[in-house]
Design a binder for these strands. Structure first.
Length: 922
RNA sequence: GCCCGGAUGGUGGAAUCGGUAGACACGAAGGACUUAAAAUCCUUUGGCUAUAAUACGGCUGUGCGGGUUCAAGUCCCGCUCCGGGUACCA
């Protein structure tokens, strides 16, 4: 019988669906295991062959764990809100909900064809009101909370109000926007609106005026992780800096916990490192500088307190609040001109031409350690958003300050013995200090590290400043001036935001006529009719960003239909957190930070029982495209084969990889591909047209997109699954190359032929031989440990080796084949089900017990030793597995082949590596 | 610039602790079966090279240059190139 994958796969997919094989319930009698994939954004292009890579890997793992006796939660859903659907809506007027629904259906049918064990009963969609009700709920919780730095956790805002009532701002240590001081009396006397305004300064979800990334082309603000190199990640449009009033999440309050948490989770080092850099902890000091002839005192942040004697100027960020306080009348005009000139530069321009620019304020600061007056400048190389927006410049030991000093001809004072600052600054934190003495502090002769510590002590003791830890991590901007996202459950009364009462939730996304901003520049929701409460208070016009819906979806899968809570306590305590999360690294500084923050916040309030959401994380590599080229001779319609093109003047043209096989062009298909090539002529080599190739991003415009549906159609889902794993290590990026898929397909056919001899099932009940058991148990051992280590490519090889051995042993024994079917079940579930039932077992193989490895069967009686002389391998010898070391040594030296290599000398040493080799040192 | 990865045949990739480099595949070449093709099976396949023949022969070989070691793809030092992240973060 032929291996008919179409019939087999369809039949078992129906069986699984009809029997709810993958429906999972909480079951206290079994250990739980939660395997999660990063849910996809359902884009219009559908899945290409790269998308399922991670899903296949996690599916293998999930199925393996199930076979090992775990109750495995393996859900899937859709990250359904997002810009592309909305951009499409703007162009076509098509409601994003409709396109999204269509795309989801397409995704679903593509996913179904691959045979995943998802529990679709638990599907979530972020755009579903039953789902985003809980996104809105979480926002409400954040609005009603503040972060207590002493307790190191989020607390209800009512606890803060109690403190204000009792002692005002006295003695509070909480995360906030700006430091505020008021007494209990003052607090009580304030109008309600006044109090609300103050509370906004402390809420974890707060409305704040912050410098944002404004993207005029998209008409929205973007979070830091949505911007790269001055352009938006989606669309690549320029982004400018602008102060706007926006919803923000106080992620920064969690900076230290997000950092510390990394030590207790099993993620790759590189990913942890990326998050550490993104959080960007830096220990330093804040110091106060007085402005000469003025009452103004300003604060700077530095990690190099030791370089205080090398300060030759100060720099303020252009947006710094100090600017207006210090500028002298003489310099006012120059400063104004400078500020105007940089306002019009986009972020991108600023980065592109990294020119040193700046202007003198006319004012001088006084160095508290030597009383010297130093000029104060304004420059855009100092950022308003980091530290205090003001720095002390030490040109000798900071390259940016150095560039500025050279441009504005300011003095450079070296502070480290032996350093040469004539050409560039000396930035390293090493060496002995010099030129560093004044006002009771002497750092000369100290190592840099000692000097930093000593200076910190000194400024603390003398009230010149304080030790301070800064983080690069900013609060997340949470508003988007867009339509296709979760509406905020917020209305405004007297200009202050309030949360809608519970019975009004979820606040559903309204219909609008056009998906564009209003005439007056309001976000699209400004077009919605009656977008207000019953009392005619206006509702928030912004919607939430993409990461809102994806931050807690893994919790919803635990209890997806619960109308009363994001997740019930029981469900949460059973599933706890994700044991294995599989997804790409591109979310390192976005989703994976926000999710951790969101989870920690819910943990603080007692809604979830684990502090970290994802215990182990595996990053699958990107599947790149492998493009093919044909070479057209200029100004003709003649194409020349790759190795002959040197003789002609040619243009390289992308050709659809689906009409190329093994880099040989299907000429007929090419002529039909486009009318332009209908009459194409070819110059062939050896009767074939050979295409060139290159590795590029998989994209339509490169004609290198391979659709998994086509592969399934041609080879079957099991072959696709196996081949995706066989392609290389999971974590590694690699190009998709359909050449080679025949190898795995052949393997499956070989396996099939162990069951079928021509037309009849040829399985026997004979007892397996030692040799057969050995082949099987080697495989059990290998596949088990490979799956545990996510080394799926080598397990596929192991299967091939085993089946080759069994084929040459002509082994058709049920006892062996049964176990083989189970071992293969995670990889080729359809085939395994089929084989399992062919052997006469009841379905489903999904619930069979994973075979137990027995070492006895794989033990060798003799072991082949490599014999080497001075490390050079020369010949092999067989020894009994339990041969004594001395006997092996003696036998090697006595062997006639050794004489040649020993060459009459006395061996200095003989090294015996058990079970491997013997090395004789002559 | 900084941080993190990586480099192994014509190709994808194996090599758990430093211990016979190239497993397993693809491709290629040759052969069997076939009227033919497809499918299937068998042999060879890193490079150079020896011998009249036989071969279980020799040399060389994991980006480059050094080093440690009885032994290095693997460890150390210095480079080159490629990929990813990040970027005036004081």
């Amino acid at each position: 019988m032929e291996y008919n994958f179409r019939e087999i796969e369809q039949r078992w997919q129906e069986f699984w669906r009809d029997n709810d094989t993958y429906r999972i319930k909480e079951d206290a009698s079994k250990p739980k295991f939660y395997v999660l994939d990063m849910f996809p954004y359902p884009s219009g292009a559908g899945l290409h062959v790269g998308h399922p890579l991670g899903y296949i890997a996690s599916d293998i793992y999930a199925r393996y764990k199930r076979l090992k006796g775990f109750n495995v939660l393996h859900p899937m859903g859709y990250d359904a809100y997002g810009l592309p659907a909305e951009q499409y809506a703007i162009q076509t007027g098509q409601h994003p909900a409709i396109t999204t629904q269509k795309n989801i259906e397409r995704y679903r049918s593509q996913l179904d064809k691959i045979g995943f064990c998802f529990d679709w009963n638990r599907e979530v969609r972020t755009c579903d009101p039953g789902y985003y009700r809980w996104t809105q709920w979480a926002f409400e919780q954040m609005f009603n909370s503040y972060y207590d730095n002493d307790l190191n956790k989020a607390m209800p805002i009512t606890a803060l109000i109690d403190k204000f009532e009792a002692n005002g701002s006295e003695g509070i240590n909480v995360a906030c926007g700006e430091e505020m001081t008021f007494t209990a009396e003052e607090w009580k006397k304030m109008a309600k609106v006044e109090q609300e305004k103050i509370l906004l300064n402390y809420r974890i979800a707060y409305l704040g005026d912050t410098m944002v990334n404004w993207c005029p082309k998209l008409g929205t603000v973007l979070a830091n992780d949505e911007v790269s190199e001055g352009v938006s990640i989606r669309g690549g449009y320029p982004v400018e800096q602008k102060v706007m009033r926006q919803w923000c999440l106080r992620v920064s309050a969690y900076a230290q916990r997000l950092l510390d948490g990394l030590d207790n989770i099993d993620w790759s080092d590189s990913l942890k490192e990326t998050q550490r850099n993104w959080i960007g902890r830096s220990e330093g000091a804040e110091m106060q500088f007085k402005v000469a002839d003025s009452d103004v005192v300003f604060t700077i942040f530095t990690t190099r307190a030791d370089t205080i004697f090398g300060v030759t100027f100060m720099v303020l960020a252009p947006e710094s609040e100090y600017v207006n306080q210090v500028v002298t009348p003489e310099q006012a005009e120059a400063v104004k001109q400078y500020l105007d000139s940089i306002k019009h530069r986009t972020e991108r321009e600023r980065i592109a031409d990294r020119k040193v620019t700046g202007v003198f304020t006319g004012a001088y600061a006084i160095n508290p350690l030597n009383n010297k007056q130093i000029p104060i400048y304004i420059s855009d190389y100092v950022l308003a958003g980091y530290g205090t927006g003001a720095i002390m410049a030490v040109p000798a030991h900071d390259s940016r300050d150095y560039a500025f000093a050279k441009t504005f001809d300011l003095p450079i004072i070296p502070l480290i013995e032996g350093c040469d600052v004539s050409e560039e600054s000396f930035d390293a934190k090493e060496g002995k200090m010099m030129n560093s003495e004044g006002n009771g502090l002497n750092l000369n002769g100290l190592e840099v590290k000692e000097a930093i510590a000593k200076t910190k002590e000194f400024i603390k003791a003398n009230n010149l400043g304080k030790v301070k830890v800064n983080y690069r991590l900013r609060d997340a901007i949470f508003s988007r001036q867009r339509y296709w996202g979760e509406p905020f459950p917020v209305y405004y009364k007297d200009g202050m935001p309030h949360i809608l009462p519970d019975e009004k939730l979820p606040l559903q996304l309204p219909e609008i006529d056009k998906y564009l901003p209003t005439e007056s520049g309001e976000p699209p929701l400004g077009r919605a009719k009656n977008w207000e409460t019953a009392e005619h208070y206006p509702l928030e016009l912004c919607t939430m960003p993409g990461f809102a819906g994806s931050s807690a979806y893994y919790l919803r899968y635990m209890d997806p239909h619960n109308p009363n809570a994001l997740v019930s306590k029981e469900a949460n305590e059973y599933w706890r957190n994700v044991d294995l999360y599989v997804g790409g690294t591109e979310h390192a500084t976005g989703h994976l930070i926000y999710s951790r923050f969101w989870n920690k916040f819910l943990f603080d309030l007692g809604y979830v029982c684990e502090d970290e959401p994802f215990k182990k994380l595996v990053n699958q590599g990107m599947i790149q495209g492998r493009s093919n080229f044909v070479y057209r001779i200029k100004d003709t319609n003649t194409f020349v084969s790759l190795n002959l093109k040197g003789e002609y003047d040619t243009t390289e043209i992308h050709v659809d990889v689906n009409i190329v096989s093994n880099d040989r062009l299907d000429i007929e298909a090419f002529r039909n591909w486009s009318p332009e090539y209908k009459d194409a002529e070819f110059i062939l080599e050896n009767g074939e047209y050979v295409c060139g190739w290159a590795v590029e991003k998989m994209s339509k415009s490169m004609y290198n997109v391979v659709n998994p549906d086509d592969i399934v159609e041609r080879y079957g889902a099991d072959t696709l699954r196996l081949y995706e794993m066989f392609l290389g290590p999971l974590e590694q990026s690699k190009p998709w190359d359909t050449n080679g898929i025949d190898g795995v397909h052949r393997f499956i056919k070989k396996l099939w032929n162990l069951f079928y001899d021509k037309e009849s099932l040829a399985v026997t009940d004979e007892e397996p031989t030692a040799e057969e058991l050995k082949a099987l148990h080697k495989l059990i051992n290998k596949v088990g440990s490979d799956i545990e280590h996510f080394s799926f490519n080598t397990s596929v090889s192991a299967f091939m080796i085993c089946v080759n051995e069994l084929t040459s042993l002509k082994c058709r024994k049920k006892a062996i084949l049964k176990e083989l079917a189970i071992l293969l079940a995670p990889f080729t579930p359809h085939l395994s089900e089929e084989l399992w039932s062919l052997l006469g077992f009841e379905p489903s193989v999904c619930d069979a017990p994973w075979p137990v490895y027995n070492e006895e069967f794989t033990k060798e009686s003799t072991i082949n030793y490599a014999i080497s002389f001075n490390g050079k391998m020369r010949f092999n010898m067989e020894f009994a597995a339990d041969a004594a070391r001395e006997d092996i040594e003696k036998a090697v030296l006595a062997d006639e082949r050794s004489a040649k290599w020993i060459d009459g000398k006395t061996p200095k040493k003989v090294i015996v590596v058990p079970n491997k080799l013997v090395n004789v040192v002559v």
